[in-house]
Every structure is written in C-alpha cells, then in structure tokens.
Write a protein that binds this DNA or RNA. Structure first.
Length: 397
RNA sequence: GGGCAGGUGGCCGAGCGGUCAAAGGCAUGGGACUGUAAAUCCCACGGGCGAGAGCCCUUCAGUGGUUCAAAUCCACUCCUGCCCA
C-alpha cells in the first residue's frame, strides 16, 4: 500500500492529527511505526465511544505496524484529569487487576491481540528513581500545566487540584519516551496530554510522536460524551437486544455520526440510506443491525431486530422475561396478593414507597391491565410490566 | 504559622433557631403525545405505617454541647478554597 493510501485511511474520520506532514515523513522513513495506545484500566467494560479509538488502532495493525497497548496500571493510580472537574478516586492495585480481567477479552473483539504488544506502565514508572522524576518534572512548568482547560477551570472556580494530578500528563509522556513511540492514538480529549508528550519527547532528544485524535462519541443522551459513569453508554459486551435497543434510542441527529464512527460502511452507502428512508427509525434499524453484527453476528443482529420490533413496535411480550420469586405467605386464602408488598419482596423495586408511587401514577400493569389498586388476585402467569417496557414475571417459591 | 470564607438530598444550590424531609435547577422514574426516540406538557422523586387527612423514623462533614426546640447557636476535629507569611 502506498504512503498516500495509508495516510488516507489513517486520517479518515479523525478529529485532528498533529501533524500529518510528520506522519508522512515517518512513513516514508520507516515501514513499521511504533503505535502506542494507552488505556486506563479504570473501567471494566468497553463502550462504542472507546471502540472508535480501538478501531483505528486495529487499522494500524492491518497496515502492518507495531502496535503497543499500554495498560496504565500505574497512571490509573492517579486518574486522568482530562475533562474532569473533580479529582478522581485513586484505584487500588487489586481493583485494577479485577478490571483488567474482564477488559482483555473485550479488547479481543476489536483488535488482534496476537499482533498487540501489551505492556503495563508500572513496569517502568514504578522503577523511576526520585532523581529521574525530578528530571522529568523539571521539563514542564506550572504555567504550562495551568494552560490546560480542565485545570484552568478548576483553578478559577476554586476547585481543588491535587499535585499528583499534575503528574499525570508527565507520566503519560514518559511512557512514550520509554517506548519511543512514533504515533499515539486517543480521543480529542487527550490533546493536552499529547502536546505535553511531544514536548517532553523533544526534551529527551526524541522525535515527537504523531498524535492522532479521534472524535468523542456522544452517548445515547445525545449531549454528553459516552461514558460509563454517566450511564449513557453502549457496551460492546452487552447482549444483542440491549445493544440494539440502546442504539435505537440514540438521538436522530447522531445517526450519521454513529454510522461513520461505529461501522465500516462507506460514506456513499450512508448517504443512500438517508435518501431512501423517510423515517429516521428505519435508518436506525440498519445502523443497529450493522453495529450488533460487528460485536455479535449478523444472525444475532437479525434476531435482535425481530425481538425489538416485537416488543417495542408491536408491544408484544418479550421472548424472555426474568423470573422473580416471592414467598407463598404473601398470598392469602382468598388468593389475594398485595402488589406493593410483592414487588418489594421480589426485589424488583427498592422500596415500597417507590411501588406505591408507581401504582398511583398508573405505571404498573398486570398481564397487560393497568393496576389501580394494590390488592390483586394471584394468577398464572403473573407478568408485571413497569413503565413502558420493563417486564417481570413473579412466581411463588 | 496568621486571617477569612465554606462543607446541605444522585449532582448544583437556597435556607442560617421552630412554619424543614429542607426552595429552585439538573439528573432520574411514571403518565400523556410519538417513530423506539427527541421536544413539549402533567406528576413523582429519603424510608416505614395508613384507604385517607395524617402519623412516625433516619438525614444537612464528624463528635460533643446550649435550648422546650438545631441544617441553623457554641466548642473541638476532619476536609476545601482565598488572602498574608
């Protein structure tokens, strides 16, 4: 593949590259670039937002470059302050290990683990002597650090900034120095860290890495970036139906973006869908099928589609309804059951007050009938619906 | 080290002795409308008891105190920010 073709593929759907000329120059000099991707093992599941970056990483693997995955077990102790207005809680070594256990198999769904060199940055960062840390920190100034948006904002609004947080970009930079990275991948929110890294690499007499920054995918709320803590994420390990449903619930104006960032479909196809279909829902169907196919299979995607139409469009019962058990004492000799007690006892709702609220607001249905009073006859099957689409089946122990 | 200002529900933020389970906003949940959404409107949003008006319990950083009564006053402790050194 020519350099031009590589550049074209690499830069597709990126948000910013610092900078393209350097990348071209590197490609012309080396056939194998060292491509670094740092991940913070603070989460234990990968969502579509991070998948955007991983997919680009996979591209470099396909192009035959050396791909290095840096598991930031050391830097996770600090917590990346990017985009945060609060100090992150420090993770313990144990929590990090737990997270990694579930993390790696998920990574394998997107990237080729065989071709991936996996390293832990504690390998070198933990061995840094205080003298070396001083040397590292002497290369950057407080004013430079405070230029960073998140720090600036926090500083201005009298929010605390712990000293260790200032170290984060420096340690991340040191990773690249240690690994002699040619290219680093990340979200656009990493821009500051990348700039620091390039700067530090030069201070260590290295050629600065090329920073390839990908867009930040919005979560299903359509506003905030996709993140687990905001609860607006779509995990790549979620079951097909959940995934399908979540994709269907994204904002209409995100459809195109999801197509571009989460699927492999060429631009022309995407444009075509918008021409063919009037109802955005139908384009979302294609999108959802496409994404579910990537992480599960085409067959499962089609099944998820059928199930979705069944439940949400035709308002039929889902094919699987979770069972919850209650004690037989809750049912009296007349076969009466207090639905509030039952929902609470079965563990479906957190408190009886919540059950009462839902009942008085008409949010509880028994076998399709809206309940208006709390005493009901127990019958089989006993299928409870809460809200529009949450189904539960109650059985007697 | 000295001076000052703060720490309130999932988050932000009012309250500053009784009328406080604590205004308002955001988030969330339910209902209406829909395309599964979004937007909009209505309602709810610590827990327990009660059909219900209502009653009770646990909350306003922590501990101890003053008071008939404390988120509100006092003391100490912890945490945060600002100014001076």
């Amino acid at each position: 593949m020519t350099i031009k073709e590589q550049l074209e593929k690499i830069s597709r759907n990126t948000q910013e590259i610092i900078n393209l000329e350097e990348l071209e120059s590197k490609l012309s000099r080396k056939s194998k670039l060292k491509v670094k991707l740092g991940i913070d093992p603070t989460a234990n599941s990968i969502h579509l937002g991070f998948a955007v970056v991983l997919r680009k990483f996979k591209l470099f693997q396909d192009l035959g470059h050396e791909t290095i995955l840096v598991l930031g077990d050391f830097t996770a102790l600090i917590g990346d302050p990017s985009g945060k207005n609060k100090t992150r809680p420090m993770l313990t070594q144990k929590e990090i290990e737990e997270n990694l256990k579930t993390y790696l198999p998920q990574l394998g769904k997107i990237i080729d683990l065989q071709k991936t060199k996996i390293v832990y940055n504690s390998q070198w960062l933990s061995n840094l002597k205080p003298e070396e840390i001083i040397k590292l920190t002497s290369r950057y100034t407080l004013a430079q650090m405070l230029e960073r948006e998140d720090f600036k904002n926090r500083y201005k609004s009298n929010e605390p900034i712990s000293l260790h947080e200032l170290m984060y970009p420096l340690f991340q930079a040191y990773d690249s120095v240690y690994l002699q990275a040619d290219v680093e991948l990340g979200g656009i929110d990493q821009k500051f860290n990348f700039i620091v890294t390039r700067y530090i690499q030069e201070k260590y007499n290295q050629e600065p890495e090329v920073a390839i920054m990908l867009p930040i995918l919005e979560g299903i709320d359509g506003v905030n970036k996709m993140s687990k803590s905001l609860g607006n994420y779509i995990g790549i390990d979620e079951d097909p139906l959940t995934m399908f449903t979540k994709i269907m619930s994204i904002n209409d104006n995100l459809i195109k973006r999801y197509f571009q960032l989460c699927t492999n479909l060429p631009e022309e196809n995407i444009e075509k869908f918008f021409k063919i279909y009037e109802n955005p829902r139908d384009i979302k169907y294609i999108l959802a099928k496409e994404i579910v196919s990537i992480y599960h299979s085409e067959e499962k995607a089609n099944k998820a589609y059928e199930e979705f139409v069944n439940i949400y469009s035709q308002k039929n019962l889902p094919s699987h309804i979770p069972f919850f058990k209650i004690n037989s004492e809750l049912i009296d000799s007349q076969n009466n059951l207090n639905i509030i007690e039952a929902l609470y006892a079965a563990g479906i709702l957190e408190s009886k007050a919540e059950a009462k609220r839902l009942l008085s607001q008409g949010g509880i249905y028994l076998n399709g009938q809206k309940l208006t009073q709390k005493i009901v006859k127990f019958q089989k099957p006993f299928i409870i619906r809460i809200g529009k689409f949450n189904y539960y089946q109650i059985e007697v122990k």
